[in-house]
């Protein structure tokens, strides 16, 4: 699983076109899934900072009825710069371990870098997009090189090989300032694969499953773990 996922991020893998799922999510499903995800995360992962829905319905200067606009936010995650010797590359025992443990993610720390994560819907790509911003304890924003040092080795490798399609700095659609983001242009392709790999019981809680599967990949880039109870639902 671990291997597959890395490869999927690395390259856009072609899959035969099946009508089961096109790897995208509609805007209304995004909101539903985001809410369900938040609820479960906050329930099963209570030691960790919580996800919040940031409402932007009135960002055009007034609150319009029937228009829900906003994004998910996870603030104040501390990630400690890992020591290089702790990694040993390529020794994935292809067990069912979903996550690379190299990076220590903590909810509170004095010596870690502070990360903020936002999940924003992209109407162009019809997928969720992970935006993030990082700064050190003294408040200085981190540059890409410094961020790389916080990432598990595998993510860092991918980053090096594909600088522009992987992590790029773009304007945060709601905050009007530069944030880093995991570029969404390949998301629907690897989501297609992920959802095909699982069983096809998409009918009941498909959108929720989509969101959890999606997060299991993008969260992994930062060593963010999903609680076991949530992983169960994606098989």
């Amino acid at each position: 699983m671990n291997q597959t996922v890395s490869i999927v991020i690395l390259k856009v893998v072609m899959v035969s076109d099946q009508e089961t799922c096109d790897g995208s999510l509609s805007l209304s499903d995004f909101r539903i899934a985001a809410n369900a995800f938040t609820e479960k995360w906050n329930k099963f992962n209570s030691a960790f900072p919580e996800w919040y829905w940031i409402d932007c319905s009135n960002r055009l200067g007034f609150a319009a009825h029937g228009v829900v606009d906003g994004y998910l936010s996870l603030q104040n995650v501390f990630i400690r710069r890992s020591l290089e010797e702790e990694h040993d590359e390529g020794s994935s025992n292809d067990d069912d371990e979903l996550f690379d443990d190299a990076t220590l993610v903590q909810s509170t720390s004095d010596d870690g870098d502070q990360y903020h994560f936002h999940v924003v819907y992209s109407p162009s790509y019809k997928v969720p997009v992970l935006y993030f911003h990082a700064h050190s304890t003294d408040g200085q924003p981190l540059n890409l090189d410094e961020i790389e040092k916080n990432l598990p080795t595998k993510s860092a490798k991918v980053l090096l090989e594909s600088k522009w399609t992987f992590i790029t700095q773009e304007e945060h659609p709601y905050l009007n300032r530069p944030w880093y983001m995991l570029h969404p242009c390949g998301t629907n392709e690897w989501m297609k694969l992920l959802l095909l790999a699982g069983d096809n019981s998409m009918a009941t809680n498909g959108t929720e499953q989509y969101f959890i599967s999606w997060f299991s990949v993008v969260g992994q880039v930062f060593g963010l773990k999903l609680p076991f109870e949530m992983l169960k639902s994606i098989g």
Binding site: Y125, W164, Q169, E171, R177, P178, H183, C185
Partner: peptide, 22 residues
């Protein structure tokens, strides 16, 4: 803090290509 970093023509080119991709 307000503007995306720009390393000259190369940054602009990639911004254009990303936009085209989108």
């Amino acid at each position: 803090n307000v503007l995306i970093p720009c390393d000259g023509e190369d940054s602009v080119k990639w911004s254009y290509i990303n936009s085209l991709k989108e």
